[in-house]
Nucleic acid binder design. Structure first.
Length: 503
RNA sequence: GGCGGCGUAGCUCAGAUGGUUAGAGCGCACGGCUCAUAAUCGUGAGGUCGUCGGUUCGAUCCCGACCGCCGCUACCA
């Protein structure tokens, strides 16, 4: 029997001023597929996402729109929830950093850090550009001027509380050394390590210049700087400081899925903060690359942000989900192009998977009156399929969806190939036809299971068309992946092509 | 400047703790089939594995230099 394990998976919480774009969708679909896989293998899964709603920019945007920050974010946060619903993201909890539970957790967590002696008050001095409303390092300046506005910066001083990050350089290095798998892939781990090896400086974690944030419990003049409150969302959702049993159930065996732009926050600050608060650092941080668009970074200024919902309307949601996970190497940068999506859609979904289903159902209907035959126990495909499903399992467990999908498509290919050899459409009804079609249907059943995390809608539809009850998500993978479980006498439905060819 | 990474078929990328003919998918060419969404199946072309040296019986894989590209190098979420 498979022992039930805990699988707590998180995405970053998104800055609510953004519009959900394909980059966010990439993270969400990835995390969703992992969550779905782990539910399939009967793990106890908790999948968390949310929105980040504090900080100066939010306060400014709210003011510009004549609203209070809270009213402003109340209006914006649902855009993310709607988008994720449309992308079929199966999150279990959606956290907003403006919720009372979050204030409570942030205050109790940082109070622990404070009580443990890792927070102190000092003066922050920095070179500030009034136009940017941002601090600059001296090296960033252009002849002493702000590089953007080309105006002199002013030396500003602000009283801040500082987090004693410098105290954790050695402990972090030791942590990285002891748990080489904690931050993956290794290229991203190196990046974080390189940063730590420079030696860490203390960082200011509170502001007095704004009040849109979580108040510092021991000093009402200050609010926490938005990043410090944001990271703590992962603990809010599991009731840190409120429900010890729930907290211990999920922590520290967490999987943070993040983009490479926030490595420092998650792979340096966050583990250190956990140490400072006296809890274990997160067990796993998986860093993925960026999804580029035609080789360019997605950016507002470039005007190349892609709307995932428009794509889903155009290609179908599952096709977009498939493309995102198949055409990128999780951990490296990926590149989105309309052409590549179309190519994947046509060759993998229409020509292979969709067409296999279509040709099999046509022959079952015409030769066997629509009644499905059963697979052959000692089929030549059995060993191959078993090997494929083992690869699928390993790939999913190693967060390598592209490998799982590649393996599944090799099985689709084999099923197509054996149909060519036996050519059941040429034969008179009899065992030979039944055997080859039973095998092909069994392949489809297995593909549905392995594919379910990526394409929950489409694989459920294939599942239904080949006469199976329920959906692939109901199975227990540990037994369902064995060859030969497709039942005979199912009624096969010949429907419209699942993925009509494009262009 | 420092640290890290990358450079393999037209394209996107795998890969080997060094060992006979370097792999996949897409694209392309030829052939088969006609159940299927002009889908599918088979065969094939083609790459001195960035350059130059070194170690070795033997390197694309190890070492060095060089060329080219990229990331990080602190509180702008």
């Amino acid at each position: 029997m498979h022992a039930v394990s805990k699988f707590f998976i998180t995405t970053p919480i998104y800055y609510v001023n953004d519009v959900p774009h394909l980059g966010h969708a990439y993270t969400m679909v990835s995390a969703d597929s992992f969550a779905r896989w782990h539910r399939l293998i009967s793990d106890d899964v908790f999948f968390l996402t949310g929105t980040d709603e504090h900080g100066l920019k939010i306060a400014q945007a709210a003011a510009e729109n004549g609203m209070s920050p809270k009213e402003w974010t109340d209006q914006l946060s649902p855009r993310f929830q709607d988008a994720w619903q449309k992308l079929n993201i199966s999150y279990d909890d959606f956290i907003r950093t403006t919720e009372p539970r979050h204030y409570e957790t942030v205050q109790s967590f940082l109070k622990s850090v404070y009580d443990n002696g890792f927070i102190y008050k000092d003066i922050y001095r920095g070179l500030y550009c009034v136009s940017c409303e941002a601090y600059y390092q001296e090296a960033e300046l252009d002849k002493g001027n702000c590089p953007i506005h080309n105006r002199p910066v002013t030396l500003m001083e602000e009283e801040n509380y500082f987090f004693r990050l410098s105290a954790f350089t050695e402990r972090l290095l030791e942590w990285y050394d002891r748990l080489p798998e904690a931050v993956r892939p290794s290229s991203k781990r190196n990046e974080a390590l390189g940063f730590i090896r420079q030696g860490l400086q203390d960082i200011s974690i509170t502001r007095t210049s704004i009040n849109w944030g979580v108040p510092v419990p021991w000093d009402s003049q200050h609010v926490f700087y938005v990043w410090y409150d944001a990271l703590i969302n992962y603990l809010t959702a599991i009731d840190y400081g409120r429900d010890q049993a729930k907290f211990q159930r999920w922590w520290p065996s967490v999987h943070h899925v993040i983009g490479k732009d926030i490595i420092r926050f998650h792979c340096v600050w966050w583990p250190a903060m956990c140490m400072a608060a006296g809890i274990d650092p997160p067990a796993n941080i998986f860093v993925h690359g960026w999804l580029l668009v035609g080789g360019e970074k997605m950016a507002k200024s470039a005007g190349n942000k892609v709307d995932p919902l428009e794509l889903a309307d155009d290609f179908g949601l599952d096709a977009v989900r498939y493309y995102l996970l198949r055409d990128t190497n999780f951990g490296s940068d990926g590149d989105f192009t309309y052409e590549a999506l179309t190519s994947r859609y046509n060759s993998d979904l229409a020509n292979n998977l969709g067409n296999l289903l279509q040709r099999v159902s046509t022959v079952v209907v015409s030769k066997l009156e629509g009644k499905a035959p059963k697979p052959v126990a000692e089929s030549p495909l059995a060993a191959f399929a078993t090997e494929v499903m083992e690869r699928v399992k390993v790939s999913w467990n190693q967060f390598a969806p592209q490998d799982a999908l590649e393996a599944l498509w090799s099985l689709i290919h084999e099923a197509n190939a054996i149909l060519e050899v036996v050519a059941p459409w040429k034969l008179a009804p009899g065992p030979e036809i039944e055997n080859v079609l039973g095998d092909a249907l069994e392949c489809l059943r297995l593909v549905c299971i392995g594919l379910y995390p990526v394409m929950p809608g489409a694989s459920s539809e294939v599942w239904r068309r080949i006469g199976l009850d329920g959906s692939p998500e109901d199975v227990d993978v540990m037994s369902a992946l064995r060859w030969g479980q497709y039942q005979s006498s199912m009624i096969i439905e010949k429907g419209a092509p699942l993925f009509p060819r494009r262009k």
